[in-house]
Amino acid sequence: MQERTGLITMKGNPLTLVGPEITTGSPAPDFRTVDTDLNPLTLQDLEHKVLIISSVPSLDTDVCDMETRRFNTEAANLSQDIKIVTVSMDLPFAQKRWCGAAGVDQVLTVSDHREASFGQNYGVLIKELRLLARAVFVLDQSRTVRYVQLVSEVTEEPDYGPILDAAKSLV
Rank of each mutant, 00 (worst) to 15 (best):
R4K: 03
T5S: 10
T5N: 03
L7N: 03
L7M: 03
T9W: 01
M10G: 07
N13C: 01
P14K: 00
T16H: 05
T16I: 07
L17Y: 07
V18K: 07
V18E: 14
T23Y: 00
G25L: 07
G25H: 02
S26F: 06
P29Y: 02
D30N: 13
D30K: 10
F31I: 11
F31S: 06
T33R: 02
T33L: 13
T33G: 13
V34T: 14
V34Q: 11
V34S: 09
D35K: 01
D35C: 07
D35A: 05
L38M: 14
N39E: 15
P40R: 00
L41E: 06
L43I: 00
L43Y: 01
Q44M: 11
E47D: 06
H48R: 10
K49Y: 09
K49I: 00
V50D: 00
L51S: 09
I52C: 09
S54G: 02
S54E: 08
S54A: 05
P57K: 12
L59M: 13
V63F: 15
V63A: 14
D65S: 04
E67C: 07
T68S: 10
T73A: 14
E74D: 12
A75L: 00
A76V: 10
N77V: 06
N77I: 05
L78D: 14
Q80S: 08
I82Y: 09
I82R: 13
K83Q: 15
V85W: 04
S88E: 00
D90I: 08
L91F: 04
P92G: 03
A94N: 00
K96G: 08
K96T: 09
R97D: 05
C99Q: 15
C99I: 12
C99A: 15
A101P: 03
A101I: 13
A102C: 04
A102P: 07
A102W: 03
V104I: 15
D105C: 09
Q106C: 07
T109A: 14
T109E: 12
V110W: 02
S111A: 12
D112P: 07
H113Q: 11
R114M: 12
R114C: 06
E115D: 09
S117P: 01
S117A: 10
F118N: 07
N121G: 12
N121L: 03
Y122K: 05
L125G: 10
L129Y: 10
R130T: 15
L131M: 14
L131F: 08
A133H: 04
R134S: 07
A135K: 11
F137S: 05
F137C: 11
V138T: 12
D140S: 01
S142H: 14
R143K: 05
R143A: 05
T144N: 08
T144P: 01
T144E: 10
V145D: 06
V145G: 13
R146F: 05
Q149F: 04
S152T: 15
T155D: 14
T155Y: 06
E156M: 15
Y160M: 02
G161H: 07
P162R: 09
P162M: 08
I163R: 03
L164F: 12
D165M: 03
A166C: 01
A166S: 03
A167I: 09
A167R: 08
K168E: 15
K168R: 15
K168S: 12
S169A: 14
L170R: 01
L170G: 06
